[in-house]
Amino acid sequence: MAKKYVDYRGSSDYIVSDELRNSVNIAIALQKPLLIKGEPGTGKTMLAQSIADSLEMNLIIWNIKSTTKAQEGLYVYDTVQRLYDSQFGDSNVADIKQYIKLGKLGEAFLADKPVVLLIDEIDKADLEFPNDLLWELDQMSFYIPETKETIEAKNRPIVIITSNAEKELPDAFLRRCIFHYIAFPDPEGMEKIIKVHHPKLEMKLLQQAMETFYMLRNISNIQKRPSTSELIDWLQALVVGGISPGRIRQELPFLGVLLKKNEDLDILLTQLNTKTQARNQNTRSSPFNRYR
């Protein structure tokens, strides 16, 4: 090892797989943004918090919406306010600086200590959005023509970007990122995660609940498969409701916590009722049934 880098090791309230930890450290060492993809509920957003906690840095979150423009992350020049002010002569309109408001990226650049910058759900924005940020993320600086100022990063922030794969991201952007796909945790990994959230959980209850959970996830045709966060909520409900472990599999209590769609509940019920004909399940709800 030529040089000792900042080393992320995971934090007490977030279970990180070796692979993911590797990727985080690679991204930090290479000073490149880390792009995280994965099923909903696999802890993409939590990762940034965990990195910030473990490295004792501040976390700046930039939530992306469908209307977000790349420019907003850098700065916003409030021209309308300035125009209004000029009409009524309230303040010194010659001072453009007071109308320049830094966005989240700008904030991260100007922070005194290195920060973790989370660009959350980048795929929500327009297709061109990531391309518009290429230069800024590469060079860690941007220019404000209005004030003829260049904002340069005092400390290079650790950039974490999450995506739900709603849109394909542009290649040029991808080339500059380190990529990691968070796979859905296997039962072992899931147990660890649950123990962080419910440390005192009864072993038997956990086993039963996990079995049922993975059974539900494996039903084909389910549109929204239950995820980690739903399992955690469900366990909470089971504990609060005082459900005995033996009843979980038969009665499937609080099912609404796991399956959020009516269609999915229907699919589950039909499948449970006709277990013997499970093979027909694929075409059961199909409009093409007539031609069987």
Binding site: M1, A2, K3, E19, N22, S23, N25, I26, A27, A29, L30, L35, K37, E168, L169, D171, L174, R175, C177, I178, F179, H180, Y181
Partner: peptide, 27 residues
């Protein structure tokens, strides 16, 4: 660059994960 900096941890496994995260950009 990453290899030069010893990021693969001189194991094939480390090398595998390093390659994957740097070279592959979609699952």
């Amino acid at each position: 660059e990453a290899l030069e900096a010893g990021m693969a941890g001189s194991s094939l496994t480390g090398f595998y994960y390093l390659c994957r995260s740097v070279l592959v950009k979609t699952e």
